[in-house]
Nucleic acid binder design. Structure first.
Lengths: 109, 109
DNA sequence: GCAATATACCTTGACAGGCGAAGTAAATAT
DNA sequence: ATATTTACTTCGCCTGTCAAGGTATATTGC
């Protein structure tokens, strides 16, 4: 998959919120989250693996998410993530900030 | 002026576009541009000086803007910036990208 | 049978933009 | 006199992104 039209510079700062949004729906794991993002954006956007996994590290260190190994009997192992109560609060806060940011930037450009 | 409510992480990536937008209106200089941004956002946002001036450097190196010294007979000297033809094209492109980015992020969070 | 592809995770090191902190200098306000 | 405002500049750190490399299992094609 090539030719992603949105430069990640503009999405920078939203990576964590995007991940949290996915985990608000259900527990999930890196690979699935990224596929889901690609699907939801019709291939316009994807997280680079290093970006995705380093975001997981930050979010887990900050207790916004928790991880556990899936019990796959077949296929590659999966590390599942679950959003915590704090994570849900952060998600709501970030969503509000996004609405504010949209207004702000719209007023400036 | 304290308590800016929007974290700059979310505006990151738009700094140059915000500056170009100001220069679309008229030639201007750093201090004035920053005051204007503060006014337009009711004090919600400002560019840090180091951020502002390093953005000027990048934009000028990329030939998106040009600079000249004002002929103030009084007060501190001012370095004025003018947007170039290329800069105008970049501005239009960035605006479109912003519209696209809004849609993208809205679909993800 | 075996190579290629898809699934799934991880680490390292470099890079770029933002910014705190500090400095320079002139004009104005207290 | 002193502080504040106007105005620009440089240095060095911090943080998030990502190219590049690695590991391991399962499936698909020839």
């Amino acid at each position: 998959m090539t030719g992603l039209s949105i430069t990640s510079d503009l999405v920078r700062g939203h990576t964590e919120t995007i991940i949290l949004a996915q985990l608000m729906e259900k527990d999930s794991y890196g690979y699935e989250i990224n596929k889901s993002i690609q699907m939801k954006t019709n291939g316009q956007y994807e997280l680079k693996e290093a970006t995705l996994y380093s975001a997981f590290r930050r979010l887990e260190a900050a207790k916004m998410i928790e991880s556990y190994w899936g019990d796959e009997t077949t296929g590659a192992r999966r590390r599942y993530y679950r959003i915590t109560k704090m994570g849900k609060l952060l998600y709501e806060k970030n969503k509000e900030d996004w609405e504010e940011t949209k207004r702000l930037i719209d007023s400036l450009i």
